[in-house]
Structures are given as C-alpha cells and as structure tokens.
Simulated scan of single mutants.
Amino acid sequence: MTTVLDVQDVTKVYGAGDTAVHALRGIRLTVDEGDYVAIMGASGSGKSTLMNILGCLDVPTGGRYLLDGLDVGALDDRRLAVLRNRRIGFVFQSFNLIPRMSALANVELPLAYGGVKAPERRRRALAALAQVGLADRVGHEPNELSGGQQQRIAVARALVTSPALLLADEPTGNLDTRSTEDVLGVLDRLSADGRTIVLITHEDDVAARAKRVIRLVDGRVVEDRRAAPVAGPPPGPAEAEVRNR
C-alpha cells in the first residue's frame, strides 16, 4: 500500500532561548493511501501546527516530512507552492469561497492557477460538483447557498485537482447539525471511494466518522487508534439533495 504521509520525528519550535515554544515534540505518524484520519487535541496541543506542516504551509524545525514520497523540507518556496496546488486539497472551516463568483467558477480556481485550459477546467469542475451532490447549483453564488452547501462547494474545489491528500481543518465548525451531517456524509463517501483524508477536529462525534483517530497533547501523539465503524451506509448525493430542498 502506498504511503501518502510519512512524518518522521517532526519537531516545531517557535522563538529561541527562554521564550522558545515547543509546539511539536517528535511527532511520528504515517498515513496510507485510502486512510481516513481524524487528528484531535485541545487548544495548544499542536494540532494546528501539525496541520500547517502537513499542508506544506509551514516547515518543521527538525525531523522529516514526506508527502507522496517527496521530502517537503528539501523544496524551495516555488516547488512547495506547486506541491500544495497539485497534491493537497484544502477544506477550511470558513469555506473561503469568492463571494461574487459562481459555484462552478469557485471550483475551477485551483485549475486556473495550474494553467488548465477552460474546457478541461469546466469538465473537471462539473464532475467534482456532481460528486458532492451539487450539480444543480453550478450557477449559484455563495450567498445563495446554505452553509452546508457552501462547504460542499469547498470540498468540490479541494477535489478538482485529484490531490493525493484531502486536508480538512474543522470543516463542520461553522455548520448546524443537518449541514454537518451532509458534509460528513460527503467525506464518508469519498473515503469509501478510496480518498485519503486527514481531518482536524475537536469534536468526538466528528472524529468517530473517521477510520482512525490520533490525539495530541502538548505536541506529542498520546493516542493512535482505529475508530469503530459507523453503522449504516451514508446517504447518496441525490438523497442529500432532497434534504436540502
């Protein structure tokens, strides 16, 4: 099985001397292709720092991090930017959609940055929107969509580049119960299709949807366990759409 993430004794220190803050203290973990991992921890546990390193938004102070076989620490800023665009799909708590752009245009953005021609961008963006159950919302702007629909647009945008890793940072943090269930249902189906997902969350019920739960305390991994499977299949896109109408 292919290893997508390989974190080897990673440390992260901010500052120096008496004011140094040790955010990560020798993190070791691997994530294989098709795994669905939830990373949990209280404020100050290091989970946000670890997310930034996994997403190539920051680099370790010590240790090595390999993403899809590439040593992130050996890359310059330009190559890091290319790696982020092509190998990682980001989903953030605040959606980060462009307000005056349609759902389709928002999903096309990573492909536009990557130089993909317009017809191919449209084809791939439409396929990604269909994958999250929003094929009938392609022309809607974010303010015409519910919070759950906006987050599903964000998931489609993260998928459109066919990344090695889907990295979701508190993706249900701004959603109500029904919208949370819709978004988690999409992630369940993506996992069932073989997507590699790393989810950052502080909510036990959200983490329970993952196949594996990693818990951080004071910059160290204190728990790494397989979660019990959730009973019953997740709803399909059509069923999710009926709930939103």
Rank of each mutant, 00 (worst) to 15 (best):
T3Q: 07
D9K: 13
V10G: 05
V10C: 04
V13E: 09
V13C: 05
Y14C: 13
Y14A: 15
D18C: 06
I27W: 00
L29F: 14
D35R: 09
A38D: 04
G41L: 02
A42E: 15
S45I: 08
S45F: 01
G46H: 14
G46Y: 15
K47G: 10
M51R: 00
N52S: 07
L54G: 06
C56F: 04
D58F: 07
V59F: 09
P60R: 03
P60C: 08
P60S: 07
G62E: 09
G62D: 11
G63M: 03
G63H: 01
L66K: 07
D71E: 09
D76Q: 04
D77V: 13
L80D: 02
V82F: 11
R87C: 11
V91T: 02
Q93P: 02
S94I: 06
F95T: 01
L97Q: 04
P99S: 08
R100D: 14
S102E: 05
L111V: 02
Y113M: 12
R124W: 11
L129A: 05
R137A: 06
E141K: 15
E144W: 07
E144T: 01
L145M: 12
Q149Y: 02
R152D: 08
A154Y: 00
A154G: 04
A156D: 03
A158C: 11
T161P: 04
L167E: 02
D169A: 10
E170S: 03
P171D: 01
P171Y: 09
G173C: 11
G173H: 01
G173L: 14
N174C: 13
N174Y: 02
N174A: 10
N174R: 11
L175C: 03
D176F: 03
R178M: 11
R178C: 01
S179A: 15
E181Y: 14
E181A: 15
E181R: 14
L184S: 00
L184A: 01
G185C: 02
R189N: 05
S191R: 10
A192E: 15
G194S: 02
I200G: 13
I200N: 08
E203K: 12
R209K: 10
A210L: 02
K211P: 08
D218I: 03
G219E: 05
G219F: 06
V222E: 07
V222M: 00
E223C: 12
D224E: 05
R226G: 06
V230N: 05
P234H: 09
G236M: 07
E239C: 09
A240K: 11
A240N: 15
E241W: 08
R243Q: 10
R243D: 14
